[in-house]
């Protein structure tokens, strides 16, 4: 990894990230977290900060196919990885079926957990297109939501999986 040292003696590294299909080269410090690169350097602010210690899941992104907490991953550790953020879920302006089902099922309230929640669900359905309700709940158990009690979120994921959904 290429590193440069500035006049103050602070070392910076050149890393390359593929985010939502596009490859970016960014300069980071050793202590820069992935979430900060996404938000501050790439202006992808759909990735949220809720706790910054890996407890709430609002910073969830998909890295090499797996949902991870970008708040506790060094940008350096993500060098060379493929990352999907919420901004990369809709394609050419067309919503993903999960985004549609979150709207249909009123699974969004304040919306702050929503990006992370959708990405956790997206990774689940990619791996397991027909999950049980328990598997759905497990997949999003690392994403805290304070508004919905997860009731309609679970329904939305079921709907996106093509499963029947009960009312209320």
């Amino acid at each position: 990894m290429q590193a440069i040292v500035d006049k103050e003696g602070i070392k910076r590294y050149l890393i390359s990230l593929t985010v939502n299909g596009d490859t970016y080269t960014v300069v980071v410090k050793a202590n820069t977290m992935l979430v900060n690169v996404l938000r501050e350097e790439l202006n992808l602010t759909g990735t949220k900060k809720g706790c910054e210690t890996g407890d709430c899941g609002s910073c969830t992104v998909i890295m090499d196919g797996k949902p991870v907490n970008s708040c506790i991953i060094l940008a350096l550790e993500a060098d060379g990885k493929e990352i999907t953020t919420i901004e990369g879920v809709a394609q050419n302006g067309v919503l993903d079926k999960l985004q549609e089902s979150f709207l249909n099922q009123t699974a969004v309230q304040c919306g702050y957990c929503t990006p992370g929640m959708i990405l956790s669900a997206k990774a689940l359905l990619t791996r397991n297109p027909n999950p049980t309700e328990h598997e759905i709940r497990e997949a999003i158990a690392g994403n805290l939501c304070r508004c919905t009690g997860y009731v309609n979120i679970v329904k939305a994921i079921k709907e996106a999986a093509g499963q029947p959904v009960d009312e209320h």
């Binding site: 899941g57 890295m63 991870v68 690392g142």
Partner: peptide, 8 residues
């Protein structure tokens, strides 16, 4: 933990 932590 949760799924995201188990992936890392």
């Amino acid at each position: 933990a949760g799924n995201q932590i188990r992936n890392i």
